[in-house]
C-alpha cells in the first residue's frame, strides 16, 4: 500500500463521512493532509488526540478525522479546548479555526489562550474571507478587497494573525501556506510537540468566494500567488518594510520557553493541599 493510502486508512473516517463539503481546489483539504502527516510523525496514539474545531468551512475538518473530535460553536473552540485540556492534561488537544473564527468572534479567546500559555496547538487557516456564508469580509481581508459586504472595497485594516499571537504571548508561532506543504508538515509537527501554546497560521485561498471577486484566478493561480508572495522568515528579516509590501513571511516566527499553565497549576494544587492539611 502506498504511504498516503496507509495514512488515509489510519486517520480518516473515510468509510462514513466522505465526500467532504469543501469546494474542489480548497486549501482545507491540503491542511487536512498536512495535519495527519504531522500527527503520524509524532507517533501519538489516536486515542490521546482531541481535535477541536469552530464554525465555518474549517470547522468541518473535525468530522473527517478518526480522533476524539469536538465541533464547537463559532469562535469558541479554544474555550472548549481549555476545559478538555485542564480536565485531562494527558490529552493532546489540537484546535482548528478559520480567520473569522479565531480573530473576529473568537478574538478575545485567542489572545487570552496565548497569554495563558496552556499546552494547546492552535491551527488558524486564513483564507481572508468568510467562505461558508458566501464571501463577507473578515478581519484578515486586505484593505481595498471586494467582498459581498464591501462592494466598494474593504475600508478596514487586516490583522496579521501570527504577529498577533506572538504579541499576545504564545510560546511558539509560525506561518505556512498550503502551497509549501513540506514546510507546513514540519510547522504543524513542531507545534504539536512544543510545550506551551503554539500557533500555526496557514495562509490559504478561497478561490470560490475571494479569488473570483478579486480577479485572482482559480485555485491553481492562487497557489501560485502563495508561492510568489511568501518569503522565508530568515530572508524576510533582512528586507525592508517597502520590500515586504504585498508579501508575507513563512517559517517559525517565535519559539520560546515560557511557564506552561498546566505545570504551574500543578504547583497550585500542591500548595492548596498543603494548606488544607495544615487547617485540619
Amino acid at each position: 500500500m502506498a504511504e498516503v493510502t496507509k495514512l488515509i486508512h489510519k486517520y480518516l473516517r473515510h468509510h462514513k463521512k466522505f465526500p467532504h463539503v469543501w469546494c474542489p481546489g480548497c486549501g482545507n483539504g491540503i491542511l487536512l493532509g498536512a495535519l495527519i502527516r504531522a500527527i503520524d510523525r509524532t507517533r501519538l496514539e489516536k486515542d490521546e488526540i482531541v481535535i477541536v474545531s469552530g464554525i465555518g468551512c474549517s470547522g468541518r475538518l473535525s468530522v473527517y478525522v478518526d480522533f476524539n473530535t469536538l465541533h464547537t460553536t463559532h469562535g469558541r473552540a479554544l474555550t472548549f479546548a481549555t476545559g478538555v485540556k485542564l480536565a485531562n492534561p494527558k490529552l493532546h488537544v489540537i484546535v482548528i479555526m478559520g480567520d473569522g473564527d479565531a480573530t473576529a468572534i473568537g478574538g478575545n479567546h485567542f489572545i487570552h489562550a496565548a497569554r495563558r500559555n496552556l499546552n494547546l496547538t492552535a491551527i488558524v487557516i486564513n483564507n481572508s474571507i468568510y467562505g461558508m456564508t458566501g464571501g463577507q469580509y473578515s478581519p484578515t481581508t486586505p484593505y481595498g478587497s471586494l467582498a459581498t459586504t464591501s462592494l466598494y472595497g474593504n475600508i478596514e485594516q487586516a490583522f496579521s494573525i501570527a504577529e498577533l499571537a506572538a504579541m499576545a504571548g504564545a510560546s511558539m508561532v509560525s506561518r505556512g501556506t498550503v502551497y509549501h506543504t513540506k514546510l507546513l508538515d514540519d510547522l504543524i509537527e513542531k507545534a504539536i510537540q512544543k510545550r506551551g501554546f503554539s500557533v500555526v497560521e496557514v495562509i490559504s485561498h478561497c478561490h470560490t468566494q475571494y479569488g473570483r471577486r478579486n480577479k485572482m484566478g482559480n485555485a491553481a493561480d492562487m497557489l501560485l500567488w502563495q508561492k510568489n508572495s511568501a518569503v522565508r522568515m530568515e530572508k524576510a528579516r533582512t528586507l525592508s518594510h517597502e520590500e515586504m509590501k504585498d508579501k508575507f513571511s513563512i517559517g517559525v516566527l517565535v519559539d520560546r520557553d515560557l511557564p506552561v499553565y498546566t505545570e504551574e497549576y500543578g504547583k497550585v494544587k500542591e500548595m492548596a493541599k498543603k494548606a488544607m492539611t495544615q487547617m485540619r
Binding site: L70, T79, F80, T82, L86, A87, N108, H112
Partner: peptide
C-alpha cells in the same frame, strides 16, 4: 480557572465535562 468572560467559562465547563 478564571476565564476571559462568561462565554469562555461556559465553553470550558462543557469541554471539561466531555473529558470526564
Amino acid at each position: 480557572i478564571q476565564m476571559e468572560d462568561e462565554i469562555a467559562s461556559m465553553g470550558a465547563i462543557v469541554g471539561a465535562s466531555l473529558a470526564g
